[in-house]
Nucleic acid binder design. Sequence first.
DNA 1: CCTCCGTTATGAAACGATTCAGACGACTTG
DNA 2: CAAGTCGTCTGAATCGTTTCATAACGGAGG
Lengths: 347, 347
Amino acid sequence: MPASIRDVAERAGVSVGTVSNVLNRPEVVSEHTRERVLDAIAALGFVRNESARHLRAGHSRTIGLVVLDIANPFFTDVARGVDDVVDPAGLAVILCNSDDRPEKESAHLDVLAEQRVQGVLITPTAELSPHLDSLRRRGIPVVLVDRRAPTPDQCAVAVDDVLGGRLAAEHLLERGHRRIAFIGGASGLPQVQERHAGVAAAVREATGDDDALLVLSPEHLTVAGGREAAARIVGLPAARRPTAAVCANDLLALGVLQEMVRQGVRVPEDFAIVGYDDIDFAAAAAVPLTSVRKPRAALGSRAAELLLDEARGEGHVHVQEVFEPTLVVRESSMAFRDRTADREGAQ
Amino acid sequence: MPASIRDVAERAGVSVGTVSNVLNRPEVVSEHTRERVLDAIAALGFVRNESARHLRAGHSRTIGLVVLDIANPFFTDVARGVDDVVDPAGLAVILCNSDDRPEKESAHLDVLAEQRVQGVLITPTAELSPHLDSLRRRGIPVVLVDRRAPTPDQCAVAVDDVLGGRLAAEHLLERGHRRIAFIGGASGLPQVQERHAGVAAAVREATGDDDALLVLSPEHLTVAGGREAAARIVGLPAARRPTAAVCANDLLALGVLQEMVRQGVRVPEDFAIVGYDDIDFAAAAAVPLTSVRKPRAALGSRAAELLLDEARGEGHVHVQEVFEPTLVVRESSMAFRDRTADREGAQ
DNA sequence: CCTCCGTTATGAAACGATTCAGACGACTTG
DNA sequence: CAAGTCGTCTGAATCGTTTCATAACGGAGG
């Protein structure tokens, strides 16, 4: 129904080749002809058919971005970073939400493959899907976002999560906490495991006690998951109950905070909380959240840069970039009493 | 580079037509042939080229979703609702962020037109872009989201924002507030104007005083905008300073809350706040936010349903759906002292 | 044995753009 | 004046798929 290049050519009284030239290499066509063609285009409301272009060109002008949870502001910030790079390059982004479910992820990757996207940016679920490899074998670049590359033959932009976990834990340990909870997730994401590892190492070094760390793994890394974990913590006998928690992301931390408040547990006096990601809402929380800050937008834009470079071909070298997180201390971890004394008294 | 249907045909020793049949109408090809073809497909890692399909079919398998602010959880919730409908239909969503800027919106609409999307879901900027009409003239369905249709010849899914504004204002008026601020935005979005109208009507009815409502319009409907507005309110002389605010969305409300707390203004004792949208973070705020709740995901999924129906053609009737908002009362508006007395004392 | 029919497979024509070898004048140049 | 050059335009081939008219084959019915 919509006008094609042939209709334009007919109306302007030129060949289709000439119309194409007006569109793509205007300098090779005479001014007079160019104007006639442009007039015809305007009159017919002609819009290029991207699929036809793509078919001929062999590559599309889109990239795919697959995230774990579109409702998590961390990922929308990443998406923004991606957009900042991809938009000026004239590419469109197909944003897919895997919901941390491998089947959804695979389905989305299949669609992206059919769309012949120029490349895929993805924060994958725990297991690296075979679909990812098959994309790469097919020559479609894949850049991992917020996840380390398992092999050096691909690009990845990650954060040193062991360090992040350590920063969070050391902060709590310094403030005297001796029984700490790590609230992760059931899906086994390596980012979460690394954060856990960092926390565990710091706790072990400081306490020499492997039981000092309680690990909870709610189903999902969401506010609801955090509430669930907090309820379990509150249910523990006082002697074994942790006095602080490091959460694998801010959504969890927010959930923990909500449930603690609801149960009448004071934060940070009775229970300290450290989140992860430092999303904007962390600072606005009921009790402003101490959190491990990651360069969210930079993660996205750097990943996009690497992807575009790889898609361009010509001597691309794979880069595994690792950003350093920092700790942002806010009220949720500002305990006032000395917990070391507390604990020693209890023993 | 990637295997084409022709390669598959060759390897399986059949014609391309047969391969296509295996893919699209497997029942018409004999089991033996089908297996051979399927084997070849697996061996070559063949993946359909969606652009070629689309070119032949005349329509793509994607839709566009254009939102005002991807960082606003309201829109990610809408996107989720859209996904719930669009995904099972086997379509992909191209998510675009206009940042409330008409030029970005237009640019995105152009890209979507070139992609020949099946339809566009959009929360448009204040002025309805001519690009929207030109899409519709070209036969691409457009459904407005969270925005009323200007004419009955198109679908729209909106919320009764006059009512929403009224609910918010009446709640504050009942609690004794007599000087109220409406914090909107500078970009003139009709949703915001309607909320304003609802608030203004309620305030006028209750106070008979047109000056009882102070209108502030920060640049953007964001947390930063809210902080900016709050700072201006605090700067006002006490006699003219409002005692409460209705904010055009929750991001603004969160910003107002932050700045008030920072300036030592107690919420809700000294200043009450009502937000709009009821995003999840509203309940988790420093002071849990009273907010006007909209059916966020339903807005998206209903809009997507209408879009798919319209794209299907065949006797589609345009629907303008208007959801009713409800007020969710939380702490941010729970004032304790009687402000009527307060005000009367002041006069 | 012939005809007819149903099942299955074929091959060519589209879809809309880009590209490229070549045509055609008009001009230079030796 | 012939040959070469330049600027401009043409037309056909091509990308990968779907579709559709048609062919090939085998079996049933007369």
